[in-house]
Simulated assay, not measured.
Amino acid sequence: MTAEAAKPAHARNLVRAFTLLDILAEATEGLTLAEVAVAASLPEATAHRLLNVLEDLKVVRVGEGNRWRVGRHLLELGAAYLDSVEIRSEARDLMAHLTEATGETCALGVLDEDRVVYIEKTDSPHPVRMHSGIGRSNPAVTSSLGRAILAFSPDWVVESAMAGGLPRRTERTVTDAEALLAELHRCRERGYSVDDAENEPGIRAVGAPVLDYRGRPVAALSVAGPEQRVRADRLDELGRATAEAARELSFRLGYSPHRSGGR
């Protein structure tokens, strides 16, 4: 008997409903009923029944071409979650200044198990820029945001993030555990992390941790852009600027180097 089959029927349906939401969240152009059923490995009748319930709750909608998409209530729920994260309001002016100073996209992210979730960003003024949507996530081990948080986290957090393996996102991705641990050590030493087009082809990024009053990493700031502009010889400059903004945000959250052992 599978783990899903062992659950009560209502619990199985709840899990399936959230699976459908995850599938539709990744399909910006929407999916037909048949495509949803295939993606969820469900009979069409089951998928249709669940979609109808979700439609009644306004978390999905069906539109032109009978294609299903996420609904407005999902946005309302997401906004409620983001509004509860006060760090966003404290970070906005710092992020705007960082983007103005560097010319590149600045992002704020938090760790969610083995992934880092974008909760705020300021876009580069350049027409060619990194497109990272709020609410999206990336593996913590490959992104500059995730690495910045992991570098200042306890060992068990790092081990948990690495437990599922190191995904190869690009040709440059570090997939060796020892090499990644060495990179996290370098991040601690210099105060910022580097993603050398390892998470997304052609995109370089630097990240720095945001610490709370206990000195624990609760988020990270990053600066990212095309490697034609974010050249290797700019990484230290951008890293230091990002670290300075993250340090100021940490102070706003009550961080004190005297109480926390220094940073």
Rank of each mutant, 00 (worst) to 15 (best):
T142Q: 10
A148I: 01
S84E: 05
N52E: 15
R186D: 15
V218L: 01
S153M: 04
L221M: 13
S153H: 04
S89C: 05
L249Q: 08
V85C: 10
R263E: 14
A208H: 03
A151G: 14
R252P: 01
L249K: 07
L20V: 10
D233S: 15
E237G: 10
T142V: 15
R172N: 15
G164S: 02
V36L: 00
E171R: 14
T242D: 01
V59M: 00
E244L: 14
L166D: 06
L180P: 10
T122E: 11
L42G: 03
P209Q: 09
P257Y: 02
G261V: 13
C106W: 00
V60T: 14
L166Y: 06
L145H: 13
A45G: 15
H126W: 11
I87S: 00
E237S: 10
Y81K: 15
R129N: 08
A179Y: 03
D155G: 10
V53Y: 15
E244N: 10
G215R: 09
A40M: 02
E200N: 02
V85H: 05
L77N: 07
A96D: 12
Y213L: 09
E183L: 13
A80E: 11
H97V: 10
T242H: 04
E44D: 09
S124L: 02
V210I: 06
G225S: 05
D22G: 11
R129M: 09
P125Q: 11
L108A: 02
E104H: 08
V59E: 01
N66D: 11
G225I: 14
L21A: 08
T242R: 01
D56E: 09
G30L: 03
V62C: 14
A205D: 00
E76A: 11
A163L: 09
D112Q: 13
V223D: 03
E26N: 14
W156V: 11
E100H: 12
L77T: 07
A182T: 15
P209M: 11
A232C: 08
A177L: 01
R186G: 06
L108F: 03
G71V: 11
V158N: 05
Y118K: 05
H10R: 06
A245Y: 04
A245H: 08
C106Y: 04
S153W: 05
L238T: 12
G202R: 07
A148E: 02
T102R: 12
S256K: 00
V141Q: 06
D236M: 12
E237I: 07
V230P: 04
H258Q: 12
R67I: 01
G65Q: 04
S160R: 14
G65C: 00
E244I: 12
D56K: 13
L108I: 04
P125L: 11
L94S: 05
S256G: 02
R92F: 00
